[in-house]
Structure formats: structure tokens, C-alpha cells
Amino acid sequence: MKPPIFDYQAPVTIADAVRLLAGDADAVVLAGGQTLLPAMNFRAANPTLLVDIQHVAGLRGIAVGDDGVVVKAMVRHRELELDAAVLRVNPLVAEVMQHVAHIPIRTRGTVVGSLCHGDPSAEMPLLLVLLGGSVIAQGPAGQREIAAEDFFQSFLTTARRQDEIVVEARFPPLPPGAGWAFDEVTRRHGDYAIVGVGCVLALDDDGRVTGVRLAACGIADRPVRLKAAEALLNGTALGVSDLDAAVAASLPAVTQPDEMHVSASYRRRALGTLIRRMVAKAAQRARTGTMQ
């Protein structure tokens, strides 16, 4: 199939890119194009203007510091996945990245592009929510920072305005000594998640939880923090009854209806299984300090 007719511009400054977006209500940003171009070929997207940002100065590079990882708008998934400095600061990033599509797509697709697409079954939005990250959007009025839990609003809908460009995403580091884990259920490896769960967890010397973050994708119209489960797990020694209570408190978060390939009941069962497994895996890593 072929895309509809569109105009194309390739600005070299962020100011020009924003100006082009502001001048056409049906203009869209083109970065990696791994989602946008197929959507155009299927006529699911019909922009009048593509604003290609690959030549815009200042939109490349990964910065790693004490406050986490800053990923610029044109950083490809594969760049982030293979960055040794990122692995040292936050090995959860690489663990999640291995589940994103396939290597050819990760080589072209951009991290920020995935966040802006806002698919509720995608891994990168979940990661940003799980870590409590944020994005920086730039538009005609300047820059603003948007927290991850405010950025993802509904199915394929984010808080980015049409005339804004998300110029970077900020992924906080793991807390010192914390364990982490991520896994998902898919029809095939590389598909979007039916259900995905991530966990970051810290323990005291007695093995009790001093802090935990849980998030899931594929279960609602956006990635969600499982805050009720977090509250029930904090302060516990992660006994069977503690995990049972956390799972039970999380099941109402499944709001995706039955569909052709999977029922809501199956999603609830998968969510419960993944919560148990990811909490156990994160706790084991917290106890041993291992990266495996």
C-alpha cells in the first residue's frame, strides 16, 4: 500500500521545526518512522506535512549522570540498549530494551518516538512510568517538563501538544542497592505485550521491603503504576500472603476488554503471575547485588 500525499520538510533547527508544526494543524514529527510510516501506508494516519527532525542540531546523544539517563529525541533504541554507561547506571533499561520489537526496528526506531506514540502495550512508556521519569517538550512558548504519569493520557494519546516536539526523555537511576526485573507475555517475541510488568525493589538487612515500584503495560489504555500493590508490599518480608494480597489489589487495574486473541480474564491471570515473578526476581537481585 502507498501513503496519502503529503509535504515534507527537514529543518535544521528546533525553532524551525516548531514553527513548521505550529503552521499546520495536520503536521506530524518524523523521527525513526517505524510506526508512523506503516500507519500512513495503511491510511491509518493522514498527515499533510512530515517534519523530519533527523537533521535538527542538538537532538542526538545520551547523557549519563548521577541523576539518571537523558535520551535525546533522535537516539535509536539500539543505541540506548548497547550503551555501557547506561547499563552501569540502570541495567533495567537494557533488560526492557531486549523486548522492544526486533533488532532491525530497534536500529531505526527512536526511544522518544515510542514514548510519543504512547501505545499502552509498549515497553518504553512502561519503563518511563516505572522509574518516575519525565519528558521535555518544546513548543512556541518554550520548554516544559511533563512527568511520565501525566504524559500518557489514553490510548495513543499523550500530553504533548501538536505544535510541540519532545526533545528528550529523562530516566532516573535505580536506587542504590535496589533490585529490578521486567518481563512480558506476548504472542511472539518482539510483539507488543499482552501484559508486561516491571519492578524496582529495595530491602533492608532483615529482608523487608523499604521501597517498591510496580508498573504494568497492556492492561489499560496507558501504562499504569500498581500503587495499591506497592502499598501492600512495603514493609513486608514478601511472604506468600503478602504477594497474594498485592496481586488481588492489582487485578482491578485490568480494564482492557476481551479481544480476538486474548480475554480480560487471561490478562488478569498473566498480570498476577508476572507480579509474583518480577517481585521475586527483583528481591533476589536486591539480596545478592547481581546483575543477572
Score class of each variant (00 low, 15 high):
H117M: 06
P47C: 11
E230Y: 10
A73R: 00
A264F: 10
F155A: 15
A101G: 04
A31N: 03
S154K: 13
N90H: 11
K72N: 09
E145M: 13
E145K: 08
V89M: 10
E81N: 13
K72H: 10
G142Q: 08
S250R: 04
R225H: 05
A31D: 03
A10Q: 12
S154I: 12
Q256D: 09
L49H: 06
A57L: 15
P11M: 04
A253H: 08
A84Y: 12
Y192S: 07
E145Q: 08
A286F: 05
T255K: 04
S134K: 12
P3K: 10
N46G: 11
M74Q: 06
W180G: 01
L131D: 00
H99L: 15
T210V: 14
A39T: 13
D66T: 05
V185L: 15
P173M: 07
A249V: 11
D24Q: 11
A237W: 13
I5M: 15
P120H: 04
L156V: 13
M40L: 07
V279W: 12
R267M: 04
L49R: 10
L130Y: 00
A178C: 08
L251P: 02
S263C: 09
I165S: 06
G142Y: 11
A231H: 14
G139E: 01
M97P: 02
L92A: 06
I53N: 02
R106Q: 04
V135R: 01
R161G: 12
L82G: 06
D205Y: 12
V69S: 06
G272Q: 00
M124K: 03
V167G: 01
Q256F: 09
